[in-house]
Design a protein around this nucleic acid. Structure first.
Lengths: 139, 139
DNA sequence: TCAGATTTTGCAACATAGTTGCATAAACTA
DNA sequence: TAGTTTATGCAACTATGTTGCAAAATCTGA
């Protein structure tokens, strides 16, 4: 059975064709994908409506199967939540290629947080130049 | 003389009417403002074109007089850089009222960053419920 | 397994956020 | 003050995302 299918069934929700396909795409991607990229990769798997894909991406986030990352551009990117990524981890976005990836080794530490704020999530976005681009592009 | 005017002159750039007005709005705001909010507040100061305001906001960022914060919505928010805010600081966005404010007391610490990534900026976004909303809205 | 209820999908239209090209206006320089 | 550069305003456009609604798919209980 499909990995994506399995994950959706495990949380007791309906593994429809679109959900399975979208989650599958996210699981296979090495980095966070923007909506157009997801749509592009779905073309190999069938015809899916862009609105439905938007809704499925939101659905995945609500059900904790993916998370939304705000990058440098205007578009949000989505990434499947792997069991080993906790709620508190960092994303790295490359200025050159725009790729976003999880840096699981980094644990953002909060010190001196004002007491009257209730914290629900922490996002640590690091921007710079990634390994690949740093090698190819002399600076 | 106007504070905004002065700041722009100090960096050796032209303090035009729009630039002074926009920077003034950002300086007076307690939190980061999205483009429509800036436009709204500018109405008291005269008629300004929305495209020009977009361009001025970008201009302020390029010249280091403001910084751009990605919030939960799609719109970017802009905040005047105060002398006491360093390049590495945190933003807090309230889930209820959407307000974004700087938390200068927090210093994001990076540990275990992979060596092959060149870091240019670090953004620590904390989401939750702010002081005001936490008091008014029982949860 | 069928009828009705619920959920999901697809389509069209709309909304929001931001960009581009270009002509005019303002500011600067010699 | 004339010419050059820079900034602004307007219109049109692109990108990203949302809403309403009807049709299709799925589920549930008899």
């Amino acid at each position: 059975m499909n990995k994506a299918d399995q994950i959706i069934q495990e949380i007791g929700e309906r593994p429809t064709a679109v959900r399975t396909a979208v989650l599958g795409v996210l699981l296979n991607a090495g980095s966070a994908l923007a909506h157009p990229e997801v749509l592009e990769r779905l073309k190999n798997l069938g015809e899916f409506d862009r609105v439905t894909v938007y809704r499925v991406l939101e659905w995945l986030v609500i059900h904790g199967l993916a998370h939304k990352v705000a990058g440098t551009g205007r578009a949000c990117r989505f990434q499947a939540t792997h069991p080993d990524t906790t709620h508190r981890h960092a994303h790295f976005q490359c200025r050159e290629c725009g790729k976003i990836c999880c840096l699981t080794e980094i644990e953002p530490k909060l010190t001196n947080l004002p007491e009257h704020f209730t914290v629900e999530s922490i996002e640590l976005n690091i921007k710079g130049v990634c390994d690949d681009c740093g090698r190819h592009i002399p600076r």
